[in-house]
Design a protein around this nucleic acid. Sequence first.
DNA 1: TCTAAACATGAGTAATCCTCACATTTGCAA
DNA 2: TTGCAAATGTGAGGATTACTCATGTTTAGA
Lengths: 213, 213
Amino acid sequence: MEDTAAPVSSQEQIASPRRAPSQQRSRERVERMLAAASALIAEQGSDAMRMGEVAERAGVSIGSLYQFFPDKRAVVWALAERYTAESQACISAALADVGDAEGLRQAFSELVDIYYGLFLAEPVMRDIWSGTQADKALRQLELADSRANAEFLTAVLKRLRPAADPTALETTAFLVWQMGEAAVRLAISVDRQEGDRLVSAYKRMALRELLAE
Amino acid sequence: MEDTAAPVSSQEQIASPRRAPSQQRSRERVERMLAAASALIAEQGSDAMRMGEVAERAGVSIGSLYQFFPDKRAVVWALAERYTAESQACISAALADVGDAEGLRQAFSELVDIYYGLFLAEPVMRDIWSGTQADKALRQLELADSRANAEFLTAVLKRLRPAADPTALETTAFLVWQMGEAAVRLAISVDRQEGDRLVSAYKRMALRELLAE
DNA sequence: TCTAAACATGAGTAATCCTCACATTTGCAA
DNA sequence: TTGCAAATGTGAGGATTACTCATGTTTAGA
């Protein structure tokens, strides 16, 4: 007798730290845990990362690890959250004072290059975001992040094309942004030369759309 | 004393059936296994799919399951392979006799609609391809599939724009195709109304690029 | 009919996530 | 300073699950 219902479809809530570290000592230990996890992900990928190994390398017991992270995904999620927070500021700054088409062209091109470079250089980031589709919580984080970033782009578009339908601009910005993330992920999974070509092609395609009409 | 090398980076080869079923009886049993797996994925997702449950539902022992599939991923992979084989024919047919810009516009739009519809309707397909980023073998299958499909598009482009640089056309086709897959995956993970808008926006963006110059 | 190969079985192995009962440390009020 | 509650730390062990293997059964063909 098994469940015939599909419990998966419900919104799996993101697991927040089981208990926020309130003492200095534990805050440092949590940092060590995250650093250990980051190193292990860089070496082996998040899938091969073992919780026991994270604990060992951080110099804490497995129990302590689970005191602050409800499960394995939460560890990865915590790292992912840091990256998004960092990049958000960078993106906001780059797009804030774009005033004309040429400005957008330059700022956008730079942003894509930075993003591409980050993925090429950061194995942890690459690993985390490539698992994004499979993990519901990460997928939600990525979507939320993408929406937030797309909003900066939307703001620019509304400035440059005040006559256009706002909803359409929002859709365009969101789509272009997501396509960019997909393009970069694609680019790093083929050889470097083709990757560069793909990123260039994406830039052209995105800008054509952003500056249309 | 731990390995400091990262064994993950090496090309994990796709696991082929451990032993191809040669008798009628076993061929039928393998079909039942795949059907059971498909049903379970539809209900719970491939991650929650348990090999024991697949065997039970197919009415075979766990040992039999492993006689034909070397591991869990191979089961999912076998299902994925079927979908790609099916869709390939469909895509090839749709693009084969495109002769002008208007023809491309129509054929492309239809293809995207079909693909979007398929993802909306087929939970198994949705699940399999959303895990695509995490699983190296599936990622390779998807890339190979995408390249093959993009080739049909490349052929059309070369016909419509004979003067253009062939490599550039190939890059464009591949990128546009991958963007399409990403757009559809994005569209099904937001609400239906926004999903529709995103797919429309993708069509416009892609066609603008495909018909440029 | 006989035999070798293909097929079938399921209890058992190994790996891993995570819990929990208990020990220790910290901050702070009396 | 002292006492104590809350926060933190520990690691053996429970629970789950992918996968193996020794052994038995069925099939195809000579």
